[in-house]
Design a protein around this nucleic acid. Sequence first.
DNA 1: AGCACGCCGACT
DNA 2: GTCGGCGTGCTC
Length: 839
Amino acid sequence: MTPPAARPPESWLVAVNLPVPAYDFAVPHGWAAPDAPLGCRVLVPWRGELAVGLVVGAGTGGAHRMREAVALLDDPARPWVPAATVRAVGTWAADARLPAGLVWGDLLGVGWEAHYTHRVRAVPGADLSMFARRVPAENWTDGASFVPALLDEIRAQGLLEEDITPLPRTRAMVVARKLADVPPAARTVTVLRAAAALPDKLTPRQRHACEWLAAHGPQDSLSGWARGAEVSPGVTSGALNAGGAAYVQEQGDPPGAWAWLREHGPAESLTAWANGASAAGIPLSVTQAGTLAARGWADSVQRPAPPPALPEACPELPGAADPDRLPELPVWRLHGGRPAQRFRALAPRVSRLLSQGRGVLVLAPDHTTLRRAWDGLSGLAAGAGTRAVQVSGQLSAAQREHTWELVQSGAARLVVGSAHALGAPLQDLALLVVLEEASEAHKLQSGSRAFVPDVAARVAQESGAALAWVGCAPAVESVPCPGAVLAPPRTRLHVVNYAAPPTQPELGPLSSVHLTPGDLGYPLSHDLARLLRQVQERGRQAALLAPRRGYSALLRCPACDHTPQCRHCDVPLRFHQETRRLTCHQCGYHEAVPDRCDQCGEPMWKARGPGTEWIAQEAARLLPGFPVYRVDKDRQDDLAPLHAGEPGLMVGTQLLLSGEAPPNLALIGVTLADTWLNVSDFRASERYHRLLRQLAEWHAGPRPPLLVVQTFQADHPALRVLVDGRDALAYPAAEAHVRQELGYPPYARLAQLEVTAREQHKAQAAAQELAGALHGAGATAQEVLGPAPSPVARLRGVYPYHLLLRARSDARLAELLRVLDSRSWKARVRVDVNPRGGL
DNA sequence: AGCACGCCGACT
DNA sequence: GTCGGCGTGCTC
C-alpha cells in the first residue's frame, strides 16, 4: 500500500512582533507549495490592518475564525531568517514557555516594517453595496485610499483581491523643474526702477540716487539701492515717494539657486540644496530654498535610495595563513590571551570556512567586543571571496536592512553582530562563534529575557554548524567543552589588603593608637594615593573603578541610624551630591535630600559606601590640578583629551570598560573589589574573576598598566589566580567543581519563576500554589526551591516571589515548566530560563 | 504591547 | 446622571 501523499499545510503559524503566541493563518490565495515557507515574512490581517509576520511553522489547523494571510514578502528559496534558525528558536521558546512573537520581537531587529505597494480591487461580481462607505471597484486602486477597517471587513468576507509588490527603499529628493514648467507667477519679481522722466521736486541727493538707479539697473530693495548710490536710506525712500522711482513687477532671470540645482541636482533635501548652492557661491538659506520650491522652481520626487554606506572591513588579513590549531568538533572553546591573539588564533578557521563558500556568524555581547571582533576578523572576508557585514544597534534602519539583504542574497557570508544577528540569513552556516559567553550582557533585558548563548547553541545544533565559545575567560558552563587556552597576558598586579593589620613602617609613631581598616586610607588607600600622585607627576593616565554611581550607597542618621528608603522598593535611596537628590537605583524614584532625619530630627547625615562622585571628589582633592573625568550612567565626560594622550584620571563604573582604554594608561584601580563578591548570586565570584581578566586585558599596548585591587578579601581564589599568573581556565575549572557539588549549572539547568502581585499575600499565595502544583506533578524537593520573597522584597510597588527550578537537563526543565500551563494562577507569573544575577 | 470592555468612586 | 480610574481579556 502506498502511503497517502502528504497534504500541503492549509495554514501557517505566523509570529508577529508582539508578546503573543504565533497564530494560525490560512495560506494566501492560490498558494500550492508543499511546505510552509519557514522564515519568510508574510503580511497578515491584524486588528483591522496589515502586519508583517514571520512564518514559524505549519499551521495546527482547527483554529476558530482563521484569517487568510495576504501575501508572502520573501522568496521561499531565500527566507528572511533561515529555516533551521526558525526551528531552533521555536523549540527554545516553547521550552521556555514564551510566546513566539515575544522571542522573535527580541531576536529579529530588521524587517518588521515592509515597504510595498498595495493595490486592491473587488472580486469580480462581488456585491459590496452593503458597505455604506466608498468601496473598491473591479479595477485596481491604491489600497491606502480606503479606510483600513473597511478594507479588512471586505477582506474578511473574501470579497477583496490584493496585489502586494515589495518596493525598493526610496527617498524624497529635490529636483529643479524645467523652465517651461515653472509657473509664470513664480518668475515675476518686484524691482525698483527709476522713472523715465524724473520729477522736478526731487532734492539734489534724491536726484543723484535716481540717476544712479537709472544708470545701474533695477534694485530689489530701498536699502540696497541706498547702499549702491551711497546715500542714506531716507533719501531713497523720499525719492520713491516723490515719484523718482517705482516698484514694478517684471519677468526676472531664473534664480541662481535654481540654475545650480538644474546643473548639480537632484539634492537629497532642501538643506542639501541650500548648502550645495552656498558652497558654490550662491547664497541660499534653507528657508529661501523652501520658498523657491513652494513657488514652483523645484519639485520633491521619490527616487530609489542609494544603498547606505556600511562600516568598512579592515584591510589587513592577520593570521589568515597561520596554521589552524583549533579543534574540529561540534562545540569547542578558545579563551585567554589578549583579544587580538584570540582573533588571530580564530582567523585561519574562519578564513578556511569562508573560502569554502560557507557562512560564519560571530555574536558579541557588547559594543566593545563587537568592535574588536570586527577589527580582528572582518579583514578575512575579502581574501576568501566574500564580504563581512556588521549587525548592530549602532546602524540605522536603512543600514540594517541593506546589511540583511547582502546576507540574504549571499553577497556577505561573514556576519559580526549583536543578538540581532542571530537570525541572519546565512545560507550555509558552518561556524557560530559566541564571544564572551559568560558576559551578563548576553542576557536580554527585554521581554523574553533570553540568554543569547543558550539560543545560539540551539541554532548551531539545528543548523549543523560548529559552535565556539571565545573570550577572555570561559564561563563555568563551558569548562567541560574541549578547547584551547592561550597564555595569560602579562599582568602587573598590586593588592591592597584592607583586612590585614597595617604594617609598622607605614604607620610610624601612630602604631600604638587604636586602628581600623580606614587607617590604610579609605576609599583611596595610601598605596593607591601614592601611585596616583606618581601618575600625575609623570603626566600619565589612570582609571579608577568605583563600585557604584552617585555619591554614596546610602545616607544614615548619625543619631538614630535611620536610612531613607525608596517609597516603591525595599532598598535604601542612593545619595547623588551633584543633583542634591536621593535616588532609587531600582525604579528611578527620587526626592530632595531631607533637611533633617524624619525619625529623630537630627539635621546631619552621614554618607556610607562611596560611589563615583565621592571617589572623583576624593581624587581631585588628592591630585590638585589634575583633570578628573567621570564615566557612569549619570555622566559621560568627553574623554577626547585622554584618548589624545593628555594626562588625566577617569573615574567610573564598569561602564568604563565599554570604551577603549586611553593610550597612556599607567594605572587602573579597583577601589573596592568586594562589591562584586558581596552579591547573593552563585555566579558572583565568576563575574569578579572575569572583571579582573577584562581589566588586565583592557589596555592593548605592550606594557600593561599596573592593576591595583583594594579589597578585604585579598586571598579570594578569583584574585589569587591572577596574582599567581595562572591561566584563564584555572578559576572557572575550580569553580566548576564547586558547582558540581552544589548541583548548579553546568550540572543543572535553572529557571526562575517570578510571581508578582500588587498585594503581598496574593503573590505569596499564588507562589505557594504554584510550588504545590509542581510537587503534585512529580517535582522533587531538589528540583523546586522556594518560594521566597525576592531579594528586594518590594519592587516598583509590587511584591515579587521567586521559585527556582533546578533540573538535570533542558528536557526535564521543559517538562517542569509545562505545569505552568495546567491552569491559571491568581498572579502574574513570568519564566526566566537561565536567570542571571541576584540569585 | 495596545486596545476595548467593564466595573466602581467623584463630580456637574 | 456622567467622567474616568485601571483590572481583565483578546489579538488568528
